[in-house]
Design a protein around this nucleic acid. Structure first.
Lengths: 158, 158
DNA sequence: CCAATATAGTTGAGCATTCAATAGTTGCTA
DNA sequence: TAGCAACTATTGAATGCTCAACTATATTGG
């Protein structure tokens, strides 16, 4: 750290707007899902990823990567989902360390029931307020941010 | 709910990119602040708001509104910050129900120490990867989202 | 002026996430 | 093939957030 690069007024405005909008949006989504389906948004993402996987089944480590979870978090989350009977763990045949998470029929049904309300909320609070152009901009922006965040060491370090 | 409005491919791409980028970014920020200052990002925002207020002092309810916290969350947070001696509570003279949160000198010093590292992280992972134009777009987008989220009932309800 | 109601803030229980420590398994290499 | 490092996944403790219940004070309407 040589000299702090403070934010300009424009940058600060963008940062605060983004921060505030995101906090509000995530709170809204979490509340909706918690009320309608009894799970936090992170759990919903787990179910979605499993539902999109062949045989509705996936290695824990891969699922953790896809959902950007730590392994610890995923372990806890899957344990909770298993208690509800929405997911089950299966030993991995080829690697005895491994576990497969499998979305059960009950879990799939729960996801199908939760999806419309969730998507409607996303539509209402994320898509509807924006123009098509802004939605496209967000895709580019998100992808640019991800590219940087995935390679932590790709800029001048202190 | 009449008929679910699913997301188009473009919308889904934008939503997932935004979601993933934001999760990564927030995790990065939280980790940086937790390591360097020992507080989560939400606490940092509280300190910032207090530092910007006259006499570094503010009513709890106003502070909760500005930081988009529930009152409960703010109470817990201020209690923690008080344990460290960074904030103190003062009875409100004009309203005996009220409390004022006051940023102490130690708290201000802690904020001054934490700020450079935090701002640098925001710069590196949020400003630098984007063009000036994208930063401007994000300000508009954020503001549009906030406008909608603040008036929950301003669209067709189910 | 009093009762009813609204507001300010706190508290505790329950749940999710983080971090560090751990057990078991695999693979490399000497 | 023995030893060691790397990988997979889980666990428990500590911390923060949410929700609902609660206390205390202020305000409003009869």
């Amino acid at each position: 750290m040589t000299e702090t690069r403070w934010l300009t007024a424009d940058e600060q405005r963008a940062w605060r707007a983004y921060l505030e909008a995101t906090n509000l949006l995530f709170d809204t989504l979490d509340r909706q899902l918690q009320q309608d389906a009894g799970i936090p948004h992170g759990y919903y993402e787990i179910l979605v990823r499993l539902s999109e996987s062949p045989d509705r089944m996936m290695r824990m480590s891969r699922l953790a990567d896809l959902t950007r979870s730590s392994r610890s978090r995923l372990s806890h989350a899957v344990a909770r989902l298993e208690e509800r009977g929405w997911v089950e763990r299966i030993d991995c045949a080829s690697d005895r360390r491994g576990q497969l998470a499998h979305l059960t029929d009950r879990g799939f049904a729960a996801l199908e029931e939760a999806a419309p309300g969730h998507v409607e909320t996303v539509h209402k609070h994320f898509i509807d307020p924006l123009t098509d152009e802004q939605v496209a901009q967000l895709a580019s922006i998100g992808e640019a941010l991800i590219a940087r965040l995935e390679r932590p060491g790709s800029s001048r370090e202190s």
